[in-house]
Amino acid sequence: MSLTDDQVRNVARLARLGLDDARVAEHAGELSNIIDVFESLAQVDTDGVEPMAHPLDLTARLRPDEAVPVTTRDAFQAIAPAVADGVYLVPKVIE
């Protein structure tokens, strides 16, 4: 199947990827070629097959519910693009 330009724009929007408008058609072609490979899956009978989310089918391990002090804030914020007074800065969200 082939993706339309609008589908490509929608996927890019979902993924928050800025897209150069001049290259939407090129992306549509590439993605369509890849999606075509997936069509073989539709032919497989998977009735009753449990989806496999994890290779070892493990259940999540639990740990004791104990507070652990985290002391890494300064180190983590030292590599942030913009911080002030211990908070991360982004463009104004509410006018």
Binding site: N10, A15, L31
Partner: peptide, 24 residues
């Protein structure tokens, strides 16, 4: 973009869940 597409509404079962089944 492929990932966002196969996880998007309307395609999730046809691609993502199906692939988890063929993975098994």
């Amino acid at each position: 973009m492929i990932g966002a597409y196969v996880l998007s509404a309307g395609y999730y079962d046809a691609y993502y869940v199906k692939a988890q089944q063929t993975r098994r």
